[in-house]
């Protein structure tokens, strides 16, 4: 539980962080809230020689709503998201996730940027950000890139972030009919299964649906088959919603651990997806 020796430096701006990343190369890691990186270092699953602390960079921790567009700075803490009325109105799915993430200590330190960049398959935000079809702004030596969530999240602990790049913001269109429901692991409280649903409704019927699942696959994933099956279904018709949400994890090699087998996880993905859809429709 004692990390390998490392050095520490504070970046004053995004450009400064990029410069420092270039200087120290593969030996360096960005440090945000530290609530994924520090535990990995203590278990010696990570041993960066240099930590570049980005928490002092100004203006990266704001939640901005411009008309229909919501933009969240990468350094925004879970607690700020959980307490945001603007977020609750514009993207309740993300608000749900922030409120159910970890415990108060974790929420007071961890950031949405760190949680996304880490690529943990049991983390909550990736499913929500996939369902929101969010756009990730990533800045490196060569300038700025915009990545869609579907391209950003790749595999377990692997994202499209380049070695010298900093994630600065995450943006998406407002999605008031959205919800995230979570099956908490009894010990870690990470997602055994997390289901995010983003709907548009036509009367009481679902016009379009985007559904994404955390905890089940090697990375969060969209459930395309379920999304099309949901079209035309009445959100309040429990049986029809459940039928449309069958086979959420089909094509996935569902993960198994000491708490839940792959088969059980896959079955729970269906149940929790149906609940997320019903909740989103009722909002």
């Amino acid at each position: 539980m004692i990390p390998a020796a490392f050095d520490y430096v504070r970046a004053s701006s995004v450009d400064d962080a990029i410069r420092l990343l270039g200087e120290h190369g593969d030996d360096a890691k960005l440090l945000a809230g530290g609530h994924s990186l520090i535990p990995m270092m203590k278990l010696r699953l990570a041993a960066p020689a240099m930590l570049i602390d980005i928490t002092g960079i100004p203006q990266l921790d704001a939640i901005r709503v411009d008309g229909n567009r919501v933009t969240i700075g990468a350094l925004t803490k879970h607690a700020a998201l959980a307490a945001s009325d603007a977020l609750k109105k514009t993207a309740p799915a993300l608000w749900d996730a922030a409120n159910q993430l970890g415990d108060p200590q974790v929420r007071n330190r961890g950031t949405i940027g760190g949680a996304s960049a880490h690529g943990d398959p049991s983390a909550d935000y990736p499913a929500v950000l996939l369902a929101l079809d969010a756009t990730f702004t990533v800045v490196g030596k060569g300038g700025e890139r915009k990545l869609r969530a579907g391209d950003f999240f790749r595999e377990m602990f692997d994202t499209a972030l380049g070695a010298g790049e900093v994630l600065t913001a995450i943006a998406f269109d407002a999605a008031p009919k959205s919800a995230y429901v979570k099956y908490h692991h009894p010990a870690s409280h990470y997602a055994v299964v997390g289901a995010a649903a983003v709907l548009t409704l036509n009367g009481g019927s679902i016009a379009t649906a985007r559904v994404a699942i955390a905890g089940v696959g090697d990375s969060a994933f969209r459930a395309g088959g379920v999304e099309s099956a949901l079209a035309g279904v009445r959100g309040s018709d429990e049986a029809a919603v459940a039928a449309a949400c069958a086979g959420t994890a089909s094509g996935q090699d569902a993960r198994s651990d000491t708490f839940a087998s792959g088969a059980y996880r896959a079955a729970m993905a269906d149940v929790f997806t149906a609940r997320a859809v019903a909740q989103a429709a009722s909002r």
Binding site: H185, P186, A187, S188, H189, T258, F259
Partner: peptide
């Protein structure tokens, strides 16, 4: 309801931390 010590086939303890070995929090 919760507590269980699990080993794999090689005798490796799989529930060696409180992230795996469940002890209820107040809300549980």
């Amino acid at each position: 309801m919760f507590e269980e010590v699990v080993y794999d086939g090689d005798g490796q303890l799989l529930t060696g931390t409180l992230m795996d070995y469940a002890i209820p929090h107040a809300e549980q």
